[in-house]
């Protein structure tokens, strides 16, 4: 194994890349700060947030309040909007200067884009789409045990990166609960790390950005979820969701078929949700899906196949055609308004 640019014995602290839109931090970054704090306390390491961008003063102040011991700010006009080259150059400079032991990213489009490239530049390992993180203090060097759910039913693999640093991982939104704002006086300290970006090395230019209302199903109190069984029509599910004040969610198949927006995908590639109740219609219940409803208080499953594994993960099981159950259910709820 060729060595990473950073040696284990010089690496220190747990770092979180803080993603933001210029005014507020991404939900998944707050979730990683919460988990990072827990790992830091368990191992006696410090927790650092890495904030990159341009003119970040107010955001940097804001970021101090979520449990990090230190917020490291890297600013440059070329970091005004995300481009792979500028951000990877800057991130690599900070990492080589500060030598993190663990470096965590949200598995968002930009987080995956950056982490994948940075890991190769640093010649280190990256575990993608983790469903849990743990720290092992009994190893010779502090080791991150990153869990990913693999193929087939019921197994998760624990991935370790023993000799290369930083130990990098991406984590899907919703896997951990977000950090809460700390009271005044419990905030971390702020520092700056100068970076130098060569504009000649930035090989992509953003011409236009169109950001709509992003749905965030990780915060929904109730979810109505459809899979392949809805056969392309989320109409009934939408009506039901409206009556319950619920958000729509979907399996990967429903998203891949183009029936509904990707932001609504539940599971390993999608989001981990924590609703009070999830009504899951026409989803078979593959493990990559069920990891996304594991934290729901109550799960109702409607599936015409009595053998469908989803019933293993449900509190209330309805073995029937969703198209014969949903219309009378909608009528019942409408009548009792």
């Amino acid at each position: 194994m060729a060595a990473s640019l950073i040696r284990p014995e010089e690496a220190q602290r747990i770092w979180v890349w803080l993603e933001h839109d210029g005014t507020s931090l991404e939900g998944v970054s707050l979730e990683l700060l919460a988990k990072g704090r827990e790992l830091a306390d368990r191992s006696g390491e410090g927790l650092v947030g890495l904030l990159m961008g341009h003119e970040l003063d107010s955001l940097a102040d804001e970021a101090l309040g979520y449990g990090a011991d230190e917020i490291v700010v890297a600013e440059d006009p070329l970091l005004e909007v995300y481009t792979t080259d500028a951000w990877c150059d800057a991130a690599a400079q900070v990492v080589l200067e500060k030598k993190p032991n663990i470096l965590l990213f949200g598995a968002t489009p930009d987080g995956r884009d950056l982490a994948g490239r940075l890991a190769v530049r640093l010649r280190t390992g990256l575990t993608a789409d983790c469903t849990d993180l743990e720290i092992k203090t009994d190893e010779p060097a502090l080791m991150l045990a990153a869990e990913v759910t693999g193929f087939g039913g019921g197994v998760a693999a624990i991935i370790a990166c023993k000799e290369n640093r930083p130990q990098m991982a991406t984590v899907r939104p919703g896997v951990f609960r977000p950090a809460l704002r700390r009271s005044h006086g419990e905030e971390g300290v702020q520092s700056r790390c100068p970076v130098r970006i060569d504009p000649g090395r930035v090989r992509t230019r953003v011409l236009e950005r169109r950001i709509g209302e992003a749905v965030d199903i990780t915060k929904a109190e109730a979810l109505v979820v459809g899979g392949r069984g809805v056969k392309g029509d989320f109409g009934l599910l939408e009506t039901l969701a409206g009556l319950l004040g619920a958000e729509l969610g979907a399996s990967r198949v429903a998203v891949d078929e183009g029936w509904i927006e990707k932001d609504r995908m539940i599971g390993q590639t999608g989001s981990v949700t924590r609703p009070k109740v999830a009504i899951v219609c026409g989803v078979s219940g593959a493990m990559q899906f069920t990891v996304g409803i594991m934290e729901a208080d109550t799960v109702v499953a409607i599936n015409s196949d009595p053998e469908a594994p989803i019933f293993e993960s449900a509190d209330y099981c309805v073995v029937d055609d969703l198209f014969s159950i949903l219309p009378p259910l909608i009528r019942e709820l409408e009548n009792s308004r």
Binding site: I159, E163, V299
Partner: peptide
């Protein structure tokens, strides 16, 4: 650099 350090049976939640 990464290795599989172990596999774990994932418990189905108590439903």
């Amino acid at each position: 650099p990464t290795t599989v350090a172990g596999v774990r049976q994932v418990a189905t939640p108590d439903r």
